[in-house]
Design a protein around this nucleic acid. Structure first.
Length: 249
DNA sequence: TTTTTATGGTCAC
DNA sequence: TGACCCTAAAAAT
């Protein structure tokens, strides 16, 4: 399931598999027939990932916006099967299918502008400006753990990375984000960028490099660092995991 | 076989 | 803040 690393990985994969080809597009499931019709036969020129959003650029200034949400996924298939929201195929027969996305529609420039305007910097993008995230964190009166899930503060972090990045930096997740010190922020940004980058490379989230390890605190009952009990709480409508012993602030 | 759960986000109140 | 949308796999029965 998708955090920012999944989206950037898909952008690369699909650029390689589908880029430069005129694509056959269809929407067997029926909810994206208009978008499919508009891109059917068009050449895919580029894919731009922003946080958890994907923008597929086709010849003729047509852009398809895809957001996987919690359940959406792309699969590559040998033969068309089932009733996906969107099916894309090259003339050579390379086929990918999208099912369960939150968003799969054409997007016009004004709407795209609004979309990008409400996204904070994405640490996976070369043009990301950490100063914007820093300023947003200083502005808000919410816990750091809530701020990290707010895509207008910083784009691409989801529930796994917020828990794991805060643990690696030994930060108390419930501290107000505005109390974060500059040096702490710089280290946190670096950790998030490194973890996301590693996720793109692996195709999965693995924040604990130890043998047999995967996460330090996410979905764990005991901390992988100190073996102490992991605390949980609902923060920003999702379950936050942290180790109070390691992350005392 | 059915129910629960999940790495996300929007909208109405 | 809560209701709701979406899908698949794990967990419960």
């Amino acid at each position: 399931m998708p955090e920012g690393h999944t989206i950037h990985r898909l952008a690369r994969q699909h650029t390689r598999l589908l880029g430069g080809h005129p694509l056959a597009a269809s929407s067997p499931q029926g909810r994206a027939v208009g978008a499919a019709a508009a891109i059917d036969g068009q050449v895919l020129e580029r894919i731009d990932p922003y946080g958890k959003h994907l923008l597929y650029r086709f010849a003729g200034d047509v852009t398809l916006h895809v957001h996987l949400g919690l359940y959406g996924r792309f699969v590559r298939v040998r033969e068309p099967r089932g009733a996906p929201r969107l099916r894309l195929a090259t003339p050579e027969g390379t086929t990918v299918q999208l099912s369960g996305p939150t968003a799969c529609h054409l997007i016009e420039p004004p709407e795209e502008e609004r979309l990008l305007a409400r996204l904070g910097p994405d640490p996976l993008r070369a043009d990301a400006d950490p100063e914007q995230a820093w300023a947003a964190l200083r502005r808000r009166r919410i816990p750091i753990a809530a701020a990290l899930l707010d895509q207008s503060v910083l784009a691409g972090v989801g529930n796994v990375y917020r828990a794991e990045a805060l643990h690696v930096r030994r930060l108390d997740p419930l501290r107000p984000s505005r109390e974060l010190e500059r040096e702490e922020f710089d280290l946190l940004w670096g950790t998030i960028a490194a973890q996301l980058t590693d996720g793109v490379r692996r195709g999965r989230i693995r924040t604990n490099p130890a043998r047999g390890g995967r996460h330090f605190v996410y979905r764990r009952t005991r901390c992988a660092s100190c073996a102490g009990p992991v605390s949980t709480a609902e923060v920003a409508a999702r379950t936050l995991y942290w180790c109070p012993a390691c992350q005392s602030g």
